[in-house]
Simulated scan of single mutants.
Amino acid sequence: MSEFLDVVLSFPTVIFSFLLVVVIGYWVIVVTGLFDLDEADAAWLGLGGAPAGITVSLLVALAWLLSLIGGQLVSGPALTVVPVVAAAGAWVCVRAALAPLRRLVPEPRVHSRGDFVGQMCVIRTGEATSDFGQAEVTASDGSSAVVQVRTTGQDRLARGDDALIFDYDADGEFFWVMPYEKEL
Protein backbone atom coordinates (compact mmCIF):
# COMPACT_ATOMS: atom_id res chain seq x y z
CA MET A 1 0.00 0.00 0.00
CA SER A 2 2.84 2.39 0.78
CA GLU A 3 4.35 1.72 -2.68
CA PHE A 4 1.05 2.71 -4.28
CA LEU A 5 0.85 5.90 -2.22
CA ASP A 6 4.45 6.75 -3.14
CA VAL A 7 3.62 6.40 -6.84
CA VAL A 8 0.34 8.31 -6.55
CA LEU A 9 1.95 11.15 -4.62
CA SER A 10 5.03 11.47 -6.85
CA PHE A 11 5.50 13.28 -10.14
CA PRO A 12 3.76 13.07 -12.62
CA THR A 13 0.73 11.34 -11.08
CA VAL A 14 0.44 13.80 -8.19
CA ILE A 15 -0.87 16.48 -10.58
CA PHE A 16 -3.90 14.39 -11.44
CA SER A 17 -4.16 12.89 -7.94
CA PHE A 18 -5.10 16.30 -6.56
CA LEU A 19 -7.68 16.78 -9.32
CA LEU A 20 -9.03 13.28 -8.69
CA VAL A 21 -9.58 14.14 -5.01
CA VAL A 22 -11.53 17.23 -6.11
CA VAL A 23 -13.67 15.12 -8.49
CA ILE A 24 -14.35 12.53 -5.78
CA GLY A 25 -15.35 15.36 -3.41
CA TYR A 26 -17.69 16.77 -6.06
CA TRP A 27 -19.43 13.42 -6.50
CA VAL A 28 -19.72 12.87 -2.75
CA ILE A 29 -21.48 16.23 -2.49
CA VAL A 30 -23.75 15.41 -5.46
CA VAL A 31 -24.65 11.94 -4.16
CA THR A 32 -25.41 13.21 -0.66
CA GLY A 33 -27.74 15.84 -2.11
CA LEU A 34 -25.87 18.86 -0.84
CA PHE A 35 -25.49 20.05 -4.40
CA ASP A 36 -28.21 19.89 -7.07
CA LEU A 37 -27.00 17.77 -10.00
CA ASP A 38 -29.12 19.66 -12.53
CA GLU A 39 -27.62 23.03 -11.64
CA ALA A 40 -24.11 21.64 -11.35
CA ASP A 41 -24.24 20.07 -14.79
CA ALA A 42 -25.95 22.91 -16.64
CA ALA A 43 -22.79 23.87 -18.53
CA TRP A 44 -21.77 21.85 -21.57
CA LEU A 45 -18.25 21.41 -22.86
CA GLY A 46 -19.11 20.30 -26.37
CA LEU A 47 -17.76 16.81 -25.87
CA GLY A 48 -20.69 14.93 -27.28
CA GLY A 49 -23.48 16.38 -25.18
CA ALA A 50 -22.50 14.99 -21.79
CA PRO A 51 -23.00 17.27 -18.79
CA ALA A 52 -19.85 19.04 -17.58
CA GLY A 53 -19.59 17.19 -14.26
CA ILE A 54 -19.55 13.80 -15.95
CA THR A 55 -17.20 14.91 -18.73
CA VAL A 56 -14.67 16.52 -16.40
CA SER A 57 -14.82 13.53 -14.07
CA LEU A 58 -14.05 11.14 -16.93
CA LEU A 59 -11.24 13.37 -18.18
CA VAL A 60 -9.58 13.60 -14.77
CA ALA A 61 -9.96 9.89 -13.96
CA LEU A 62 -8.57 8.78 -17.31
CA ALA A 63 -5.73 11.34 -17.22
CA TRP A 64 -4.85 10.14 -13.71
CA LEU A 65 -4.77 6.51 -14.89
CA LEU A 66 -2.69 7.31 -17.99
CA SER A 67 -0.31 9.41 -15.89
CA LEU A 68 0.04 6.57 -13.38
CA ILE A 69 0.86 4.11 -16.16
CA GLY A 70 3.16 6.55 -17.97
CA GLY A 71 5.04 7.33 -14.75
CA GLN A 72 5.84 3.64 -14.38
CA LEU A 73 6.89 3.10 -18.00
CA VAL A 74 8.96 6.26 -18.57
CA SER A 75 11.92 7.60 -16.62
CA GLY A 76 14.41 10.44 -16.81
CA PRO A 77 13.77 13.70 -18.67
CA ALA A 78 10.97 12.14 -20.73
CA LEU A 79 8.94 11.97 -17.50
CA THR A 80 8.12 15.67 -17.85
CA VAL A 81 5.95 15.07 -20.94
CA VAL A 82 3.86 12.35 -19.29
CA PRO A 83 1.23 14.76 -17.82
CA VAL A 84 0.76 16.45 -21.20
CA VAL A 85 0.46 13.14 -23.03
CA ALA A 86 -1.89 11.79 -20.34
CA ALA A 87 -4.16 14.85 -20.56
CA ALA A 88 -4.20 14.77 -24.38
CA GLY A 89 -4.85 11.04 -24.42
CA ALA A 90 -7.68 11.40 -21.93
CA TRP A 91 -9.21 14.22 -24.01
CA VAL A 92 -9.13 12.12 -27.19
CA CYS A 93 -10.53 9.01 -25.49
CA VAL A 94 -13.36 10.83 -23.68
CA ARG A 95 -14.29 12.78 -26.79
CA ALA A 96 -14.46 9.56 -28.81
CA ALA A 97 -16.42 7.76 -26.08
CA LEU A 98 -18.99 10.53 -25.79
CA ALA A 99 -19.40 11.16 -29.53
CA PRO A 100 -22.38 8.77 -29.85
CA LEU A 101 -24.27 10.90 -27.32
CA ARG A 102 -24.47 13.73 -29.84
CA ARG A 103 -27.27 11.88 -31.61
CA LEU A 104 -29.14 11.14 -28.37
CA VAL A 105 -28.98 14.49 -26.61
CA PRO A 106 -30.70 17.38 -28.38
CA GLU A 107 -28.74 20.59 -28.82
CA PRO A 108 -29.96 23.47 -26.67
CA ARG A 109 -32.45 25.54 -28.63
CA VAL A 110 -31.18 28.94 -29.68
CA HIS A 111 -33.93 31.52 -29.73
CA SER A 112 -34.18 33.97 -32.60
CA ARG A 113 -36.13 37.16 -33.05
CA GLY A 114 -38.40 35.38 -35.49
CA ASP A 115 -39.75 33.34 -32.55
CA PHE A 116 -41.70 36.43 -31.42
CA VAL A 117 -43.70 36.70 -34.65
CA GLY A 118 -47.29 35.72 -33.90
CA GLN A 119 -46.92 36.53 -30.18
CA MET A 120 -48.86 39.05 -28.17
CA CYS A 121 -47.01 42.01 -26.67
CA VAL A 122 -47.79 44.95 -24.40
CA ILE A 123 -46.73 48.48 -25.37
CA ARG A 124 -44.29 49.87 -22.76
CA THR A 125 -43.49 53.34 -24.15
CA GLY A 126 -45.91 56.28 -24.01
CA GLU A 127 -47.07 55.32 -27.47
CA ALA A 128 -46.08 53.20 -30.42
CA THR A 129 -46.25 54.70 -33.91
CA SER A 130 -44.77 54.06 -37.32
CA ASP A 131 -41.55 55.78 -36.16
CA PHE A 132 -41.05 54.68 -32.55
CA GLY A 133 -42.19 52.28 -29.89
CA GLN A 134 -41.20 49.53 -27.50
CA ALA A 135 -43.17 46.58 -26.24
CA GLU A 136 -42.69 43.70 -23.83
CA VAL A 137 -43.14 40.23 -25.24
CA THR A 138 -43.02 36.90 -23.42
CA ALA A 139 -41.20 34.00 -25.09
CA SER A 140 -42.45 30.42 -25.04
CA ASP A 141 -39.96 29.56 -22.27
CA GLY A 142 -41.45 32.24 -19.99
CA SER A 143 -38.68 34.82 -20.34
CA SER A 144 -39.63 38.32 -21.38
CA ALA A 145 -37.91 40.89 -23.58
CA VAL A 146 -38.42 44.52 -24.43
CA VAL A 147 -38.32 44.91 -28.21
CA GLN A 148 -38.52 47.75 -30.70
CA VAL A 149 -41.92 47.91 -32.45
CA ARG A 150 -43.53 49.93 -35.24
CA THR A 151 -47.14 50.25 -36.36
CA THR A 152 -48.46 50.41 -39.89
CA GLY A 153 -50.41 53.27 -41.37
CA GLN A 154 -52.02 55.61 -38.87
CA ASP A 155 -52.25 53.11 -36.00
CA ARG A 156 -51.18 54.56 -32.66
CA LEU A 157 -50.92 52.37 -29.62
CA ALA A 158 -50.74 53.73 -26.07
CA ARG A 159 -48.84 52.40 -23.05
CA GLY A 160 -50.47 49.20 -21.80
CA ASP A 161 -52.24 48.41 -25.08
CA ASP A 162 -52.09 44.84 -26.32
CA ALA A 163 -50.65 44.32 -29.78
CA LEU A 164 -49.95 41.39 -32.09
CA ILE A 165 -46.49 41.00 -33.59
CA PHE A 166 -47.01 40.02 -37.22
CA ASP A 167 -43.57 40.52 -38.83
CA TYR A 168 -39.92 41.30 -38.19
CA ASP A 169 -37.91 43.88 -40.14
CA ALA A 170 -34.31 42.62 -40.13
CA ASP A 171 -32.93 45.80 -41.73
CA GLY A 172 -34.50 48.12 -39.16
CA GLU A 173 -34.27 45.53 -36.35
CA PHE A 174 -37.84 46.07 -35.17
CA PHE A 175 -41.14 44.20 -35.11
CA TRP A 176 -44.27 45.23 -36.94
CA VAL A 177 -47.30 45.24 -34.65
CA MET A 178 -51.00 45.84 -35.00
CA PRO A 179 -53.70 46.59 -32.42
CA TYR A 180 -55.22 43.55 -30.78
CA GLU A 181 -58.51 43.55 -28.94
CA LYS A 182 -59.26 40.62 -26.69
CA GLU A 183 -62.50 38.78 -27.32
CA LEU A 184 -65.10 39.25 -24.64
Rank of each mutant, 00 (worst) to 15 (best):
G76M: 10
V23A: 08
A52L: 12
S140E: 14
A163W: 01
D115G: 03
D155W: 00
R113W: 06
E127I: 08
L20H: 02
W176M: 07
R95A: 12
V85N: 00
V8L: 11
L19W: 06
A43M: 15
D6T: 12
E183P: 01
A61S: 14
W64R: 05
Q134A: 14
R150Y: 09
V137Y: 10
T152M: 07
Q148I: 09
I29Y: 01
G46E: 10
I54A: 13
V23K: 02
S67P: 02
T55K: 01
T80D: 06
V85Q: 00
F18M: 15
D167Y: 08
D36N: 12
V177I: 12
D155A: 14
E181W: 02
V147P: 01
S130K: 10
G172W: 02
V21Y: 01
P12Q: 08
Q148A: 14
L79C: 04
G89Q: 02
E183Y: 08
P83N: 09
Y168N: 05
Y180E: 15
A96H: 00
L164Q: 11
L58W: 06
A170Y: 01
S143Y: 06
G114T: 04
S75E: 14
S67W: 06
V94N: 06
A52M: 11
R159H: 13
V85W: 05
S57V: 06
A158N: 11
T125G: 11
P83L: 09
F166P: 03
A96C: 08
S75T: 11
D115M: 07
T151H: 08
F132Y: 14
V81N: 03
A87K: 00
L98E: 04
D115V: 03
V23W: 02
G172S: 08
C93F: 10
C93P: 00
L20R: 02
V30E: 12
V30T: 05
L73E: 04
A145F: 11
A170Q: 10
Q154G: 03
V7T: 12
G70P: 01
E181I: 12
F16K: 03
V147N: 04
V31L: 14
E136V: 15
P100R: 04
V122K: 09
D36R: 08
